[in-house]
Design a protein around this nucleic acid. Sequence first.
DNA 1: TCTGGGGTCCTAGGACCC
DNA 2: TCTGGGGTCCTAGGACCC
Length: 421
Amino acid sequence: MSTMFALVDCNNFYVSCERLFRPALNRCPVVVLSNNDGCIIARSNEAKELGIGMGEPFFKKKAFLQRHKVKVFSSNYGLYGDLSCRVMSVLQQLEPDVEVYSIDEAFVRLPAHAEQPVIQQGKKIKQRVDQCVGIPVSVGIGTTKTLAKIAASVAKKDQQCSGVFFLEDSVQKTILSTLEVQTIWGVGRQTSNTLNRHGIYTALELQQSDPAWIRKILGLPCARTVMELRGQPSIPLEATPSSRKSVVSSRSFRHPVTELSALKEAVSWFISLAANKLRNQELVAAQLHVFLSTSRFRTDIPRFSGSSMATLPQPTSTTSVLIKAGMQELAALYKKGYPYNKAGIMLTGLGRADMQQQNLFVPAESKRNTKLMAALDQINRRWGRDALRYASSGLQREWSMKQSWRSPAYTTNWKELPVVH
DNA sequence: TCTGGGGTCCTAGGACCC
DNA sequence: TCTGGGGTCCTAGGACCC
Protein backbone atom coordinates (compact mmCIF):
# COMPACT_ATOMS: atom_id res chain seq x y z
CA MET A 1 0.00 0.00 0.00
CA SER A 2 1.22 3.46 -0.83
CA THR A 3 1.80 6.10 1.80
CA MET A 4 -1.24 7.85 3.20
CA PHE A 5 -1.94 11.34 4.40
CA ALA A 6 -4.22 12.24 7.27
CA LEU A 7 -5.61 15.70 7.80
CA VAL A 8 -6.36 16.39 11.45
CA ASP A 9 -8.75 19.30 11.76
CA CYS A 10 -9.93 20.75 15.07
CA ASN A 11 -13.71 21.13 15.10
CA ASN A 12 -14.88 24.75 15.42
CA PHE A 13 -11.50 25.35 16.99
CA TYR A 14 -11.91 28.73 18.69
CA VAL A 15 -15.30 27.75 20.06
CA SER A 16 -13.88 24.47 21.35
CA CYS A 17 -11.12 26.43 23.11
CA GLU A 18 -13.65 28.63 24.88
CA ARG A 19 -15.72 25.62 25.86
CA LEU A 20 -12.77 23.77 27.33
CA PHE A 21 -12.82 26.08 30.35
CA ARG A 22 -16.57 26.56 30.47
CA PRO A 23 -18.25 23.21 30.00
CA ALA A 24 -21.58 24.91 30.64
CA LEU A 25 -21.33 26.19 27.08
CA ASN A 26 -21.25 22.71 25.62
CA ARG A 27 -24.81 22.59 24.34
CA CYS A 28 -25.28 26.33 23.75
CA PRO A 29 -24.79 28.13 20.47
CA VAL A 30 -21.44 29.97 20.68
CA VAL A 31 -19.62 32.29 18.28
CA VAL A 32 -16.18 33.88 18.34
CA LEU A 33 -15.49 37.26 16.74
CA SER A 34 -12.52 38.48 14.73
CA ASN A 35 -10.23 41.22 15.98
CA ASN A 36 -12.03 44.45 16.69
CA ASP A 37 -15.21 42.43 17.20
CA GLY A 38 -15.75 42.81 13.47
CA CYS A 39 -16.86 39.49 11.98
CA ILE A 40 -18.02 36.11 13.16
CA ILE A 41 -15.12 33.75 12.49
CA ALA A 42 -15.99 30.64 14.49
CA ARG A 43 -19.34 29.02 15.18
CA SER A 44 -20.42 26.05 17.23
CA ASN A 45 -22.61 23.50 15.44
CA GLU A 46 -25.65 24.95 17.21
CA ALA A 47 -24.76 28.38 15.86
CA LYS A 48 -24.29 26.98 12.35
CA GLU A 49 -27.74 25.41 12.60
CA LEU A 50 -29.20 28.80 13.38
CA GLY A 51 -27.97 29.88 9.95
CA ILE A 52 -25.12 32.10 11.10
CA GLY A 53 -22.60 32.35 8.26
CA MET A 54 -18.82 32.34 8.36
CA GLY A 55 -17.38 35.83 8.22
CA GLU A 56 -20.69 37.64 8.71
CA PRO A 57 -20.34 41.17 10.11
CA PHE A 58 -21.15 41.08 13.79
CA PHE A 59 -23.13 44.30 13.87
CA LYS A 60 -25.62 42.92 11.37
CA LYS A 61 -26.27 39.85 13.51
CA LYS A 62 -26.11 41.37 16.96
CA ALA A 63 -29.86 41.47 17.56
CA PHE A 64 -30.33 38.01 16.11
CA LEU A 65 -27.64 36.58 18.36
CA GLN A 66 -29.21 38.16 21.41
CA ARG A 67 -32.62 36.80 20.52
CA HIS A 68 -31.30 33.28 20.24
CA LYS A 69 -29.16 33.56 23.35
CA VAL A 70 -25.96 32.90 21.46
CA LYS A 71 -22.85 33.29 23.62
CA VAL A 72 -20.38 35.70 22.05
CA PHE A 73 -16.62 35.88 22.57
CA SER A 74 -13.99 38.30 21.31
CA SER A 75 -11.01 36.39 19.96
CA ASN A 76 -8.35 35.38 22.43
CA TYR A 77 -5.33 34.36 20.39
CA GLY A 78 -3.15 33.82 23.43
CA LEU A 79 -5.44 30.99 24.49
CA TYR A 80 -5.96 29.53 21.00
CA GLY A 81 -2.26 29.60 20.17
CA ASP A 82 -1.35 27.77 23.33
CA LEU A 83 -3.97 25.05 22.90
CA SER A 84 -2.95 24.68 19.26
CA CYS A 85 0.63 23.93 20.36
CA ARG A 86 -0.65 21.25 22.70
CA VAL A 87 -2.67 19.58 19.96
CA MET A 88 0.29 19.67 17.58
CA SER A 89 2.68 18.18 20.11
CA VAL A 90 0.32 15.27 20.71
CA LEU A 91 0.37 14.57 16.96
CA GLN A 92 4.15 14.81 16.89
CA GLN A 93 4.38 12.29 19.68
CA LEU A 94 2.35 9.84 17.63
CA GLU A 95 3.96 10.22 14.21
CA PRO A 96 7.32 11.59 13.00
CA ASP A 97 6.08 13.48 9.92
CA VAL A 98 3.65 16.21 10.86
CA GLU A 99 3.04 19.40 8.92
CA VAL A 100 1.44 22.10 11.05
CA TYR A 101 -0.69 23.63 8.36
CA SER A 102 -2.58 26.27 10.34
CA ILE A 103 -3.58 27.05 13.90
CA ASP A 104 -6.19 24.28 13.82
CA GLU A 105 -5.03 21.82 11.15
CA ALA A 106 -2.14 19.45 10.56
CA PHE A 107 -1.23 16.92 7.91
CA VAL A 108 0.20 13.66 9.23
CA ARG A 109 1.97 11.01 7.17
CA LEU A 110 0.67 7.60 8.13
CA PRO A 111 3.18 4.76 8.03
CA ALA A 112 2.90 2.78 4.79
CA HIS A 113 3.10 -0.73 6.15
CA ALA A 114 1.61 -0.34 9.57
CA GLU A 115 -0.11 -3.35 11.05
CA GLN A 116 -3.16 -1.29 11.83
CA PRO A 117 -5.55 -0.34 9.05
CA VAL A 118 -5.45 3.41 8.41
CA ILE A 119 -8.90 3.93 9.83
CA GLN A 120 -7.69 2.55 13.15
CA GLN A 121 -4.69 4.86 13.06
CA GLY A 122 -7.04 7.77 12.49
CA LYS A 123 -9.20 6.77 15.43
CA LYS A 124 -6.17 6.52 17.63
CA ILE A 125 -5.11 10.08 16.73
CA LYS A 126 -8.55 11.44 17.47
CA GLN A 127 -8.84 9.61 20.75
CA ARG A 128 -5.39 10.69 21.90
CA VAL A 129 -5.99 14.40 21.20
CA ASP A 130 -9.30 14.15 22.99
CA GLN A 131 -7.72 12.55 26.02
CA CYS A 132 -4.62 14.79 26.26
CA VAL A 133 -6.02 18.18 25.28
CA GLY A 134 -9.80 17.87 25.19
CA ILE A 135 -10.28 19.47 21.78
CA PRO A 136 -12.48 17.43 19.40
CA VAL A 137 -10.94 16.78 15.97
CA SER A 138 -11.95 15.28 12.64
CA VAL A 139 -9.54 13.07 10.76
CA GLY A 140 -9.63 12.60 6.98
CA ILE A 141 -7.41 10.09 5.23
CA GLY A 142 -6.43 9.86 1.56
CA THR A 143 -3.54 9.17 -0.78
CA THR A 144 -2.81 12.90 -1.30
CA LYS A 145 -3.20 15.98 0.84
CA THR A 146 -6.06 17.24 -1.32
CA LEU A 147 -7.93 13.95 -0.97
CA ALA A 148 -7.27 13.94 2.78
CA LYS A 149 -8.86 17.38 2.97
CA ILE A 150 -11.94 16.10 1.20
CA ALA A 151 -12.05 13.10 3.51
CA ALA A 152 -11.90 15.38 6.55
CA SER A 153 -14.87 17.39 5.34
CA VAL A 154 -16.83 14.13 5.04
CA ALA A 155 -15.67 13.08 8.50
CA LYS A 156 -16.95 16.34 9.91
CA LYS A 157 -20.33 16.29 8.21
CA ASP A 158 -21.34 12.65 8.24
CA GLN A 159 -22.45 11.56 11.71
CA GLN A 160 -21.95 7.89 10.85
CA CYS A 161 -18.17 8.04 10.60
CA SER A 162 -17.78 9.45 14.12
CA GLY A 163 -15.09 11.89 13.13
CA VAL A 164 -12.79 9.66 11.07
CA PHE A 165 -13.11 8.95 7.35
CA PHE A 166 -10.94 7.18 4.80
CA LEU A 167 -11.55 8.13 1.18
CA GLU A 168 -11.13 4.68 -0.37
CA ASP A 169 -11.05 4.11 -4.12
CA SER A 170 -14.36 2.28 -3.95
CA VAL A 171 -16.27 5.34 -2.69
CA GLN A 172 -14.23 8.02 -4.40
CA LYS A 173 -16.29 8.44 -7.55
CA THR A 174 -19.54 8.75 -5.66
CA ILE A 175 -18.17 11.35 -3.28
CA LEU A 176 -16.31 13.43 -5.85
CA SER A 177 -19.38 13.58 -8.07
CA THR A 178 -21.36 15.28 -5.30
CA LEU A 179 -18.73 17.91 -4.49
CA GLU A 180 -18.75 21.30 -6.18
CA VAL A 181 -15.33 22.39 -7.44
CA GLN A 182 -15.35 25.40 -5.12
CA THR A 183 -15.19 23.17 -2.08
CA ILE A 184 -11.85 21.67 -3.16
CA TRP A 185 -8.72 22.86 -1.40
CA GLY A 186 -6.97 25.34 -3.70
CA VAL A 187 -10.03 26.13 -5.84
CA GLY A 188 -11.41 29.54 -4.94
CA ARG A 189 -14.10 31.72 -6.42
CA GLN A 190 -12.22 32.94 -9.49
CA THR A 191 -10.99 29.50 -10.43
CA SER A 192 -14.37 27.90 -9.97
CA ASN A 193 -16.02 30.58 -12.12
CA THR A 194 -13.57 29.84 -14.90
CA LEU A 195 -14.08 26.10 -14.52
CA ASN A 196 -17.85 26.53 -14.61
CA ARG A 197 -17.55 28.52 -17.82
CA HIS A 198 -15.81 25.50 -19.32
CA GLY A 199 -18.54 23.18 -18.12
CA ILE A 200 -16.70 21.77 -15.12
CA TYR A 201 -18.82 21.79 -12.00
CA THR A 202 -17.92 18.83 -9.82
CA ALA A 203 -14.73 17.49 -8.28
CA LEU A 204 -15.15 14.39 -10.43
CA GLU A 205 -15.27 16.46 -13.62
CA LEU A 206 -12.14 18.31 -12.55
CA GLN A 207 -10.39 15.04 -11.75
CA GLN A 208 -11.16 13.78 -15.25
CA SER A 209 -9.99 16.88 -17.12
CA ASP A 210 -6.62 17.22 -18.82
CA PRO A 211 -3.97 18.65 -16.47
CA ALA A 212 -1.99 20.21 -19.35
CA TRP A 213 -5.06 22.10 -20.51
CA ILE A 214 -5.89 23.16 -16.94
CA ARG A 215 -2.34 24.34 -16.57
CA LYS A 216 -2.76 26.52 -19.66
CA ILE A 217 -5.99 28.18 -18.64
CA LEU A 218 -5.57 28.30 -14.85
CA GLY A 219 -1.89 27.95 -14.07
CA LEU A 220 0.30 25.56 -12.22
CA PRO A 221 -1.40 25.42 -8.80
CA CYS A 222 -4.67 24.26 -10.31
CA ALA A 223 -2.94 21.65 -12.48
CA ARG A 224 -1.39 20.28 -9.30
CA THR A 225 -4.82 20.03 -7.76
CA VAL A 226 -5.95 17.88 -10.69
CA MET A 227 -3.01 15.53 -10.16
CA GLU A 228 -3.76 15.36 -6.47
CA LEU A 229 -7.40 14.48 -7.16
CA ARG A 230 -6.10 11.64 -9.32
CA GLY A 231 -4.19 10.30 -6.35
CA GLN A 232 -0.78 11.48 -7.49
CA PRO A 233 0.90 13.44 -4.69
CA SER A 234 1.93 16.85 -6.07
CA ILE A 235 1.86 18.97 -2.93
CA PRO A 236 4.50 17.51 -0.64
CA LEU A 237 4.22 17.23 3.11
CA GLU A 238 6.45 19.85 4.72
CA ALA A 239 7.35 18.54 8.12
CA THR A 240 10.08 21.13 8.69
CA PRO A 241 8.59 24.59 8.44
CA SER A 242 10.32 26.77 5.86
CA SER A 243 11.70 29.99 7.24
CA ARG A 244 9.27 32.84 7.32
CA LYS A 245 9.37 35.41 4.51
CA SER A 246 7.44 38.27 5.99
CA VAL A 247 5.94 39.55 9.21
CA VAL A 248 2.79 41.65 9.15
CA SER A 249 1.20 43.65 11.91
CA SER A 250 -1.97 45.58 11.20
CA ARG A 251 -5.31 46.44 12.75
CA SER A 252 -8.56 48.15 12.01
CA PHE A 253 -9.30 51.04 14.32
CA ARG A 254 -12.16 51.32 16.77
CA HIS A 255 -13.11 54.65 15.17
CA PRO A 256 -11.91 56.32 11.97
CA VAL A 257 -8.70 58.29 12.51
CA THR A 258 -7.76 61.46 10.64
CA GLU A 259 -4.83 62.89 12.58
CA LEU A 260 -1.25 62.05 11.70
CA SER A 261 -0.32 62.01 15.39
CA ALA A 262 -2.71 59.15 16.14
CA LEU A 263 -1.55 57.22 13.09
CA LYS A 264 2.01 57.62 14.28
CA GLU A 265 1.09 56.04 17.59
CA ALA A 266 -0.63 53.14 15.91
CA VAL A 267 2.16 52.49 13.41
CA SER A 268 4.76 52.68 16.20
CA TRP A 269 2.84 50.10 18.16
CA PHE A 270 2.53 47.78 15.15
CA ILE A 271 6.26 48.08 14.56
CA SER A 272 6.96 47.19 18.20
CA LEU A 273 4.86 44.04 17.88
CA ALA A 274 6.43 42.96 14.60
CA ALA A 275 9.99 43.71 15.74
CA ASN A 276 9.42 41.60 18.82
CA LYS A 277 8.21 38.74 16.68
CA LEU A 278 11.30 39.13 14.53
CA ARG A 279 13.62 38.94 17.55
CA ASN A 280 11.81 35.91 18.95
CA GLN A 281 12.67 34.08 15.76
CA GLU A 282 16.18 35.52 15.59
CA LEU A 283 15.52 37.27 12.30
CA VAL A 284 16.27 40.69 10.88
CA ALA A 285 14.40 42.60 8.16
CA ALA A 286 15.79 44.48 5.19
CA GLN A 287 12.63 46.39 4.23
CA LEU A 288 9.76 47.99 6.06
CA HIS A 289 6.41 48.68 4.37
CA VAL A 290 3.80 50.98 5.85
CA PHE A 291 0.23 50.88 4.63
CA LEU A 292 -2.80 52.97 5.28
CA SER A 293 -6.41 52.83 4.08
CA THR A 294 -9.94 54.06 4.54
CA SER A 295 -12.85 51.66 4.92
CA ARG A 296 -13.47 49.69 1.78
CA PHE A 297 -17.15 49.36 2.64
CA ARG A 298 -18.06 53.02 2.93
CA THR A 299 -19.14 54.90 -0.16
CA ASP A 300 -19.97 58.18 1.55
CA ILE A 301 -16.37 59.25 2.09
CA PRO A 302 -13.31 59.87 -0.07
CA ARG A 303 -11.33 56.64 -0.28
CA PHE A 304 -7.65 56.07 -0.03
CA SER A 305 -5.41 53.05 0.08
CA GLY A 306 -1.67 53.10 -0.31
CA SER A 307 1.64 51.80 0.89
CA SER A 308 5.20 52.98 1.07
CA MET A 309 8.43 51.04 1.50
CA ALA A 310 11.72 51.89 3.17
CA THR A 311 14.91 49.97 2.53
CA LEU A 312 16.79 49.94 5.80
CA PRO A 313 20.45 50.94 5.88
CA GLN A 314 21.11 47.42 7.09
CA PRO A 315 18.88 44.52 8.11
CA THR A 316 17.72 45.01 11.67
CA SER A 317 15.23 44.01 14.36
CA THR A 318 15.82 47.02 16.59
CA THR A 319 12.50 48.65 17.37
CA SER A 320 13.80 52.22 17.54
CA VAL A 321 15.52 51.98 14.15
CA LEU A 322 12.40 50.53 12.57
CA ILE A 323 10.14 53.12 14.16
CA LYS A 324 12.31 55.91 12.82
CA ALA A 325 12.11 54.55 9.29
CA GLY A 326 8.41 53.86 9.69
CA MET A 327 7.62 57.41 10.77
CA GLN A 328 9.29 58.75 7.63
CA GLU A 329 7.31 56.46 5.37
CA LEU A 330 4.09 57.28 7.16
CA ALA A 331 4.66 61.02 6.80
CA ALA A 332 5.29 60.55 3.08
CA LEU A 333 2.16 58.43 2.70
CA TYR A 334 -0.21 60.47 4.84
CA LYS A 335 -2.74 62.72 3.18
CA LYS A 336 -4.83 65.05 5.25
CA GLY A 337 -8.58 64.79 5.28
CA TYR A 338 -9.22 61.07 5.00
CA PRO A 339 -10.93 59.08 7.75
CA TYR A 340 -8.53 56.15 7.93
CA ASN A 341 -9.83 52.95 9.41
CA LYS A 342 -6.83 50.74 9.11
CA ALA A 343 -3.05 50.90 9.13
CA GLY A 344 -0.32 48.35 9.24
CA ILE A 345 3.27 47.47 8.57
CA MET A 346 5.06 44.61 6.90
CA LEU A 347 8.66 43.51 7.33
CA THR A 348 10.28 41.74 4.37
CA GLY A 349 13.68 40.65 3.18
CA LEU A 350 14.04 38.54 6.30
CA GLY A 351 17.30 36.87 7.13
CA ARG A 352 18.92 35.23 10.10
CA ALA A 353 20.24 37.66 12.66
CA ASP A 354 23.53 35.79 13.01
CA MET A 355 24.29 35.74 9.30
CA GLN A 356 24.01 39.41 8.46
CA GLN A 357 26.07 40.84 5.71
CA GLN A 358 27.73 44.07 6.77
CA ASN A 359 27.17 47.14 4.68
CA LEU A 360 30.48 48.65 3.64
CA PHE A 361 29.26 52.21 4.09
CA VAL A 362 27.24 51.87 7.25
CA PRO A 363 28.76 51.09 10.63
CA ALA A 364 27.60 47.77 12.10
CA GLU A 365 24.70 48.09 14.45
CA SER A 366 25.87 48.60 17.98
CA LYS A 367 25.87 45.82 20.53
CA ARG A 368 24.04 48.26 22.77
CA ASN A 369 20.93 48.03 20.61
CA THR A 370 20.93 44.26 20.78
CA LYS A 371 21.28 44.26 24.56
CA LEU A 372 18.63 46.92 24.95
CA MET A 373 16.16 44.89 22.88
CA ALA A 374 16.91 41.75 24.88
CA ALA A 375 16.19 43.61 28.12
CA LEU A 376 12.99 45.09 26.71
CA ASP A 377 11.73 41.69 25.60
CA GLN A 378 12.53 40.13 28.93
CA ILE A 379 10.60 42.75 30.87
CA ASN A 380 7.62 42.51 28.56
CA ARG A 381 7.61 38.73 28.70
CA ARG A 382 7.36 38.95 32.43
CA TRP A 383 4.99 41.86 32.91
CA GLY A 384 2.87 41.81 29.75
CA ARG A 385 3.66 42.86 26.22
CA ASP A 386 3.05 46.53 26.72
CA ALA A 387 4.51 46.93 30.19
CA LEU A 388 7.44 48.77 28.64
CA ARG A 389 6.91 50.45 25.34
CA TYR A 390 8.03 53.27 23.17
CA ALA A 391 6.56 56.66 23.98
CA SER A 392 5.72 57.08 20.31
CA SER A 393 3.14 54.31 20.55
CA GLY A 394 1.03 56.49 22.81
CA LEU A 395 -1.00 56.27 25.98
CA GLN A 396 -4.47 57.34 24.90
CA ARG A 397 -4.81 54.93 22.03
CA GLU A 398 -7.94 56.28 20.43
CA TRP A 399 -7.23 53.85 17.64
CA SER A 400 -7.06 50.69 19.70
CA MET A 401 -9.18 47.61 19.09
CA LYS A 402 -12.60 46.82 20.37
CA GLN A 403 -12.60 43.61 22.40
CA SER A 404 -15.67 43.57 24.56
CA TRP A 405 -16.03 39.90 25.31
CA ARG A 406 -12.59 38.44 25.61
CA SER A 407 -12.22 35.40 27.83
CA PRO A 408 -9.28 35.19 30.25
CA ALA A 409 -5.92 33.93 28.97
CA TYR A 410 -6.39 30.81 31.08
CA THR A 411 -3.20 29.06 30.08
CA THR A 412 -0.71 31.81 29.28
CA ASN A 413 -1.16 34.46 31.96
CA TRP A 414 -0.67 33.73 35.66
CA LYS A 415 -3.19 36.38 36.58
CA GLU A 416 -5.89 34.68 34.53
CA LEU A 417 -5.55 31.05 35.56
CA PRO A 418 -8.90 29.33 36.02
CA VAL A 419 -9.99 29.22 39.66
CA VAL A 420 -11.24 25.97 41.16
CA HIS A 421 -13.25 27.05 44.18
C1' DT B 1 -21.81 53.84 14.47
C1' DC B 2 -20.07 48.97 13.68
C1' DT B 3 -17.45 44.57 7.86
C1' DG B 4 -10.35 40.48 10.69
C1' DG B 5 -5.51 39.49 10.34
C1' DG B 6 -1.57 36.98 8.68
C1' DG B 7 0.43 34.34 5.42
C1' DT B 8 2.16 31.83 0.66
C1' DC B 9 2.90 31.09 -4.19
C1' DC B 10 2.54 32.26 -9.03
C1' DT B 11 2.42 35.23 -13.08
C1' DA B 12 2.78 39.08 -16.11
C1' DG B 13 5.21 42.78 -17.37
C1' DG B 14 8.85 46.28 -16.99
C1' DA B 15 13.78 47.37 -16.72
C1' DC B 16 17.99 46.21 -18.05
C1' DC B 17 21.67 43.81 -20.37
C1' DC B 18 24.30 41.94 -24.29
C1' DT C 1 8.74 51.44 -45.73
C1' DC C 2 12.37 49.14 -42.77
C1' DT C 3 13.69 49.37 -36.39
C1' DG C 4 16.42 41.88 -32.92
C1' DG C 5 15.96 38.58 -29.71
C1' DG C 6 16.67 36.42 -25.70
C1' DG C 7 17.90 36.22 -21.05
C1' DT C 8 17.58 37.67 -16.01
C1' DC C 9 15.93 40.05 -12.21
C1' DC C 10 12.55 42.51 -9.77
C1' DT C 11 8.01 44.08 -8.48
C1' DA C 12 3.09 44.53 -8.18
C1' DG C 13 -0.93 42.33 -8.06
C1' DG C 14 -3.90 38.31 -8.10
C1' DA C 15 -5.53 34.19 -6.07
C1' DC C 16 -5.75 31.30 -2.51
C1' DC C 17 -5.46 29.53 2.31
C1' DC C 18 -6.97 29.49 7.43
